[in-house]
Amino acid sequence: MKSMLGESLASVVVTHAGLSGDRTHAVLDEEGAIGSAKHPRKWGHLLGCRSRVAEDDTVVVELPERTACTVGDPDLDARLSKLLGIQVCVIASAPAHSRLERAVPEYEGGVPDAMRASKSVDGTGEKITVGKVAPGTFFDYRRVHLVTTSSLTMLRSVCPAGDFDPRRFRPNLLVDTGELPPFAEDGWKGWRLRVGEALFRVLVPTPRCVVPTLGHDELKPDPGIMRAIAREHRVPVFDLGRPACFGLYLDVLEPGGIRLGDTITREDES
């Protein structure tokens, strides 16, 4: 479920749609906004919920009070509406005219320069920008997101008071890059990466939003996280200027299984 807590897996099947079970559902309000903690004043309580795929392939949502509801149960929509203070429902596909709202942080790099000029103030009093999810998905851009341990280690060194737990960044893949320098992944653009049975193509660095600064389960809010990234790593992305980036977006070239501990290797074009 988009913007709810996920789960760590020892193995997963990767399809052309991404990791099985990843963001197959989302919450939608009556005005067509898709629930995203990128607008925490409106949707932040979603991070107090946890979602998972059960053995029978049903999607189960555990609410903050530990009540568990299955997607399709009308009680789930009612409980989520009460939690968020607005009328919402759970959906399995994005309506054509749905939108995605993002809070605009004050620090430079916290939102792409090209988007900052379009900000407005919504009913919560928050400055936001409005965009769309990737067509046919609930992903912001591409279907797989990767971060590296080398870059996490560097960020911890420059901001030792920060809690750089990788869960804050909600990656699909956390890669142990050993002694590689921080942000070595910036040079991977266009590479084909084999992980287990699956093959990916590296696209672009991942522009970051406010979500890593928010509380995640037992992780406390930490507003310094994104300020550190904005200081250390603003890089060009398309026509978006130089947003604060951490991680990489990938596309799936070949589906297959991945297991914890699989090696990651570069494959040249045949």
Score class of each variant (00 low, 15 high):
K2A: 06
A10G: 07
V12A: 14
V13P: 00
T15E: 05
G18V: 09
L19V: 13
S20R: 11
T24H: 12
H25P: 10
A26F: 06
L28Y: 07
L28W: 08
D29N: 15
E30R: 15
K38R: 15
G44H: 06
S51I: 01
V53F: 13
V60P: 01
P64Y: 04
E65G: 04
L76R: 04
R79V: 12
L83E: 08
S93G: 01
A96H: 08
S98H: 10
A103H: 15
G110I: 06
V111T: 15
D122L: 04
K132F: 13
V133A: 04
R143P: 01
P160Q: 10
F169R: 05
L173D: 10
L173C: 07
L174G: 10
D176Y: 09
G178Q: 14
E179T: 14
L180P: 01
K189C: 15
G190T: 07
G190E: 03
L193T: 12
A198R: 05
L199D: 11
P212L: 08
H216D: 02
H216Q: 07
L219R: 02
K220C: 10
I225T: 04
R227D: 02
A230L: 11
R231K: 12
G241P: 02
P243F: 11
A244V: 00
F246S: 06
F246E: 12
E267P: 00
E267L: 11
E269M: 13
